[in-house]
Amino acid sequence: MIIDEEVLAVLTALVIVGSVLSIAMLIPRKPEPFLAIGLLNEKGYIGDYPTTIVAGEPVRLNVFLANYLGRVALLQVRVKLGSRGWIPSNSTPLDAPALQNITVVLEDGKNLTVPVTLKISEPGINRAIVFELWMFNTTSGTWVYTGRWNHLYVNVTAPGVKV
């Protein structure tokens, strides 16, 4: 035999490993599904968020959304106004009216950054701008709170007041 049997055995072993890995990659797997929401500043970066805002003046922020559910999802970001200690939890949303709703259909594996412009009319200290992520349940035909939220504490000053 021209080729050594040991060499052939080693080469065959390499081919076996290669084909097993290829097969493993071909078999479809369902990774753990999740949704993500993130709060970005006006420029679309993490950090450098406004801490003091003027009542009635627009505040510009960006909301980052990501869908890894393995399917398309109809998502809604509900912007609410809370305060220190009065924010949502993983199971319950904030019991406050939504200032603004952002609704979007997001494909699986895709993310989106949505610009948000808010106006808070009443001055106050330690106000929490809350961004809750809701998902539409097509089976029940209702919006369901995903348990994901972000919040930003701000001091809202009256117009014309210097800080």
Partner: peptide, 22 residues
Amino acid sequence: AVILALAATPALFYYFFPRLYA
């Protein structure tokens, strides 16, 4: 079909490679 072809590759390699090499 692709999985079958990949699974058969090592056996085919073991049989044909020495002959082709020769």
